[in-house]
Design a protein around this nucleic acid. Structure first.
Lengths: 357, 357
DNA sequence: AGCCAGAATGAAACCTGTTTCATGAAAACA
DNA sequence: TGTTTTCATGAAACAGGTTTCATTCTGGCT
């Protein structure tokens, strides 16, 4: 059966479609009697306006595109969850665009990620979304991908875009970001405060801006405390549990080994925990570990992870609010900084050779 | 600047919009010379067809709605990830509809979940999606919500709907589901095979069909082995780490305690692991634990979790394929059963009093 | 009674594509 | 050479709403 339209309602109510539209949107006064008649018919036929047609003239769709690299990375569902509730409250629906897909054997394919970002951008424009939020991927590269930068900058003239936790340097795009450097400082200062002097850093990707910022926070905290950063204790390239385990194991095998490890995300920290366990090293008594991101899994481990919370939900929430303002044509600050918070749990303690605090 | 339309292209190319549409869709022969001219203009102006207008006439949008209860529950990103890659391959984009939102304090709100399901259903219809997939929530209730059942059944006449891992009993809706009973049997048989006779079951929600099915698998496996299920060892109502920890702790405090625990999901199992650790009970030497779902976090724990994989990605992937077929008007089997797989890792071993296998 | 503001409503244009139907031109056939 | 196909294209209708502009009908005011 053909869905019922405003024309059907109008005919049956003996009015013009204009009037039906008016009661639908409350956009002009309609005589109570007429309105009641129309509303009754709408209910009777369970009339639902066709959003496509409506959006076509209104030039607004209430749709947003959310581009992220990998929904199975537990950091993103947190951000998304905050975004989701705020977006819904504001009346938006959103397309989820994951740039990392899996093949039939369920292996993740990273190779075409960047290509996909561009594809999605185009697709979202065709779908006439009211706004776009991007997180991760090329947005998070320290040295900007000039191609994406140009593309996104061009697009930003036509549709509001907000970048999350990334910068796309050299462009003037709106973004909401956790202060990643500060987060790293908090973590490292905590370690130093406990008496640690031999602190290793593991994980991250040198090319990514989040890594560089966290690294810079690490360095500055070390420097402020007059501590040296040992090159052989800085193991990068990786963000997974496996890598964390591998790096930590390598560190623990060194003749001189650190008393604390600062891991650039929680997954790495969980890996480090496993490595310590394998090596028979007690955490936190013999080794302190701090993670980054505060994903829910940080409390699942034994012992529970000390980590720095990026307020992921808050970031998502702000993204929605900001986008909404931009869509409404209001001005928004170019950068909204979310201040991270150190969450002290069970994986940190004074180093073995120092008397307890 | 106003986006360029087929009219702009047509005017500049000195042809009618019909011809432009033809080269756009390759729907009828166009003289090579004309085509080239039009294509050139499209590139020059970076013409992108307005998907709204197109969908309005075509009566297909390439959009799907995906309704799930909580994206931060790590089971769902797995399903979604499989769905995502298949959907993309087939040319669909999808709206993510999370029915559990968070408030400003980032606490999850479960109270309005069911109401939201209905709202989303309506919203998706207005947006003219080509299909809908639902997982969790009321779909997963053992005793069907008659209201939702009616609603969804009615909707299913107008748009393809597939239910994931749930049934909405008494209705004839298409669904793809893991064989949850079988999964439970596999898990319990594994335990029994190792020599366990004192097996507890923790977690789940009595009202949910997944729980009932898993429970039934548990019972049938026990019965087949001539083992009694002890009422005081069956602790339900909950699916979280916290609940798992609480239940396990309670079990471990009993004068007579089980040698193995079958947890209705991995989160519970992780909680059980923590409880055992707190109580100083070694896993798997003194206590075996098996989980359910095989979420990625199952390998993060120490020791790594023995669990049953529901092939979550596969479920998502099948959902997309099935929906695509339904949209194309092809017939699909009413139920597609995904067979689960037992993943033996490190949390199971023979019970302490029995000589090793 | 005459005039005017505002309320209530309809006709028609518009948004941006797709699709049907008709027509002229070129190609194929007899 | 005349006729039938096939090719190439345009005009117009259509999808389902919104919005502008014009018109009719009131009630209030002088």
């Amino acid at each position: 059966m053909r869905p019922v339209t405003v024309y059907d309602i109008a005919r049956e109510a003996n009015v013009s479609v204009a009037t039906v539209s008016r009661v639908l949107n409350n956009t002009a006064p309609v005589k109570k009697e007429t309105r009641d008649r129309i509303v009754a018919l709408m209910n009777k036929h369970q009339f639902q306006p066709n959003a496509l047609a409506r959006s076509l003239t209104r030039k607004e769709t209430g749709m947003i595109g959310f581009i992220l690299p990998d929904i199975t990375n537990p950091f993103f569902p947190e951000v998304l969850s905050g975004f989701d509730s705020e977006a819904r409250r504001l009346g938006y629906t959103y397309f989820l665009c994951d740039t990392i897909s899996t093949n039939e054997e369920n292996q993740r394919l990273y190779d075409r990620q960047y290509e996909r970002e561009s594809q999605y951008l185009g697709l979202l424009m065709e779908k006439q979304v009211d706004g776009i939020v991007m997180i991760g991927g090329r947005v998070d590269l320290a040295k900007p991908d000039p191609e994406l930068a140009r593309e996104v900058e061009e697009l930003a003239k036509r549709v509001p875009i907000v970048l999350l936790n990334g910068s796309l340097p050299k462009t003037k795009l709106n973004r909401v970001s956790a202060d990643q450097k500060l987060g790293a400082q908090l973590a490292v200062q905590h370690l130093i405060g406990l008496g640690h002097r031999d602190i290793a850093l593991i994980g991250g990707y040198a090319k990514m801006s989040n890594t560089q910022q966290r690294l810079s926070g690490f360095r500055s905290a070390m420097k402020d405390a007059g501590l040296a950063v040992r090159r052989e204790w800085t193991l990068t390239e990786g963000f997974s549990v496996e890598k964390g385990q591998e790096f930590a194991a390598r560190l623990l095998n060194m003749k001189r080994r650190p008393t604390a490890m600062f891991c650039l995300n929680d997954l790495l920290a969980i890996g480090a925990l496993k490595a310590a366990h394998r090596a028979g090293i007690a955490v936190p008594e013999e080794l302190s570990i701090v993670g980054y991101d505060d994903i829910p899994q940080a409390t699942y481990s034994i012992p529970e992870l000390t980590t720095v919370s990026l307020k992921s939900q808050e970031i998502g929430r702000q993204a929605a609010k900001t986008l909404d303002k931009m869509i409404a044509g209001k001005k928004v600050p170019a950068l909204q900084s979310i201040v991270p918070e150190l969450i002290v749990r069970e994986t940190t303690a004074p180093p073995p050779d120092v008397p307890g605090a």
